[in-house]
Simulated assay, not measured.
Amino acid sequence: MPDQTRPRILAVTNQKGGVGKTTTAINLGAALAELGERVLIIDLDPQGNASTGLGISARDRDNTTYELLLEDAPLASVIRQTGVERLDIAPATTDLSSTDVELGNAENRVFLLKDALSSEVLLTYDQVLIDCPPSLSLLTVNALVACDAVLVPLQAEFFALEGLSQLMLTVRDVRETANPGLRIEGVVLTMYDQRNNLSQQVEADARATLGELVLQTRIPRNVRLSEAPSYALPVLAYDPASKGSQAYMELAEELLARHAKRKEPA
Rank of each mutant, 00 (worst) to 15 (best):
D88G: 07
S135E: 09
A156M: 10
E85L: 11
N105G: 08
F159Q: 07
K263C: 05
A50R: 01
S165P: 03
V202N: 03
E185C: 03
L96N: 00
L28Y: 11
N108V: 08
N222C: 09
L213K: 06
P265R: 12
P153D: 08
D205C: 12
A247R: 02
T94Q: 10
N27L: 02
L210R: 06
D115S: 15
L236Q: 06
N105P: 04
D72Y: 15
I9C: 04
S226N: 13
R262F: 04
A252G: 14
N142L: 08
S57L: 10
V121N: 12
N108F: 09
L213S: 14
R175M: 07
A92P: 02
P46E: 04
E264S: 15
K263F: 11
T93N: 05
N179S: 09
I89G: 00
S98A: 15
A260M: 12
G36W: 05
L164H: 10
A237F: 01
S77K: 07
T177F: 06
P265K: 13
T177S: 11
S118I: 13
M191N: 14
P265Q: 13
N108A: 14
Q81H: 15
L233Y: 01
V128S: 06
N142M: 15
L113A: 04
P133W: 06
L113D: 03
K16L: 08
D131E: 13
S230G: 12
V214A: 00
L139S: 06
L87H: 03
S57Q: 12
K243V: 12
G18V: 03
I184L: 12
E185Q: 11
I89F: 02
E253C: 11
S77W: 05
A146F: 03
I42A: 08
S98R: 14
T99L: 15
I42S: 06
P240I: 06
A11F: 06
A208I: 05
V141K: 07
G104N: 14
E34N: 13
F158P: 09
A237K: 02
K261E: 13
I79A: 03
H259Y: 15
L28V: 11
Q81Y: 04
V174C: 07
I184H: 00
Q194K: 12
P134N: 10
D239A: 14
P7Y: 00
D173M: 12
Q194Y: 02
I9R: 01
A50C: 05
L167V: 08
G211V: 06
L54T: 07
M249Y: 06
L225Y: 05
L139G: 02
A232C: 11
S137E: 13
A50K: 01
K114R: 14
L255C: 08
M168L: 15
Q4Y: 11
V171I: 14
R175D: 01
D62V: 08
E157M: 09
L210F: 12
D95R: 11
A146Y: 10
C147W: 00
R172G: 13
L96P: 01
T52I: 07
A241L: 14
V128N: 04
T65L: 04
D72M: 09
N222A: 09
V174G: 10
L68V: 06
L182P: 00
S245H: 08
R183S: 10
R175Y: 01
V101H: 10
R175K: 13
V202E: 07
T94V: 12
L136R: 13
R38A: 11
E157W: 11
A143F: 09
G186R: 02
Q81I: 07
R183I: 05
L139N: 05
Q216M: 10
V235K: 00
A11K: 00
A76G: 13
R221G: 06
V223S: 10
